[in-house]
């Protein structure tokens, strides 16, 4: 009898558990920086989980089925959009069996839908490499677009959780003000930066925002490994355009980049698309890292 009572109580507690656990809005972000933007807006009213790790290539995150457990209870899924996560996110959404976060659902948010996109292509095929026809998806590296996405996120969070709408809006405004101030502060400092070469076209939004000229790419086409001939041409270009920095994502750092640096005399600069840190602090720390690196200021 005692055993039955304990079993009954246990089941009752287990059944009640979700009610306690989900007091906050449950948010899942695909990428660490998106998680930080979402956390900056959600504040104490949301619980944010991130699927990819800091330093991981956002195009190639292993779709571990265990990641779907976060999506299963999510009220809101924050993605970059423009098919950046199309290689690994769909099977996780399917496995989660959560209709809220399916594309088109009330809980599906693609940041790219909230910002002005650049790099769109009218006609594409795979001979152009792993291009994103609807635009370059690395928008979160531009502080102003991040601010726009934060505002749109606040509106979406308010729709899902109207009770805390004011808090979401106020936090988004405060976050946006910080980002705009950062742009105002850094634009003059980066006005005279030499042209750079980057590995992949990840930094287009960032470089355009701060008017940093990008002379070329180590990849001849997105996602395609460079040939020796391409690298030879690139080394000549680096010399000709007096390129000082070779920007590289942490996951692309390898012998090819080091070889180009040795041959050209350029400096390899690791430009992370996310750093460790919570919410606004983490996102601002990433921007700080990028801006200091671009200005040639060593930490």
């Amino acid at each position: 009898m005692k055993l039955l009572k304990r079993l009954f109580l246990g089941l009752l507690l287990w059944a009640m558990l979700p009610a306690f656990a989900y007091a906050q809005i449950q948010i899942v972000a695909t990428l660490p920086a998106l998680g930080q933007i979402a956390a900056a807006v959600a504040g104490k009213d949301g619980d944010v989980r991130v699927l990819a790790q800091v330093g991981q290539d956002p195009h190639f995150v292993p779709p571990k089925p265990t990641l779907a457990r976060h999506l299963a209870r999510a009220d809101l899924l924050v993605t970059a959009g423009l098919a950046l996560e199309s290689g690994w996110l769909p099977p996780l959404i399917e496995l989660s069996r959560n209709p809220r976060v399916r594309q088109g659902g009330a809980g599906y948010f693609a940041g790219a839908d909230a910002v002005t996109i650049i790099g769109t292509l009218e006609k594409t095929d795979r001979s152009m490499g792993d291009v994103h026809p609807e635009g370059n998806p690395h928008w979160w590296l531009d502080p102003i677009r991040a601010a726009e996405a934060a505002s749109a996120l606040a509106r979406r969070m308010a729709e899902i959780d109207p009770e805390h709408a004011t808090g979401y809006r106020q936090r988004a405004e405060a976050f946006s003000a910080q980002l705009k101030a950062m742009v105002v502060l850094w634009q003059p400092k980066l006005a005279a930066v030499s042209p750079v070469v980057s590995y992949h076209d990840s930094y287009r939004y960032f470089s355009e925002r701060f008017a940093i000229p990008v002379a070329g790419f180590i990849e001849p086409k997105p996602g395609v490994e460079p040939s020796v001939r391409h690298l030879d041409d690139l080394v000549l270009l680096i010399g000709k355009q007096q390129v000082k920095q070779l920007w590289v994502e942490p996951y692309h750092l390898g012998r090819i980049v080091k070889r180009v640096a040795t041959l050209s005399g350029g400096t390899v600069v690791i430009m992370p698309d996310a750093v460790q840190g919570e919410g606004a602090t983490g996102y601002l720390a990433m921007l700080d890292t990028l801006l200091n690196a671009a200005a040639g200021i060593r930490p």
Partner: peptide
């Protein structure tokens, strides 16, 4: 300054037609 930057980006996007076309 901020508006000018945003306008420049918007113009650059307008010059490349195809977000909505895509």
């Amino acid at each position: 300054v901020v508006e000018k930057e945003e306008l420049e980006v918007a113009n650059s996007v307008a010059a490349k037609p195809v977000n909505h076309t895509a």
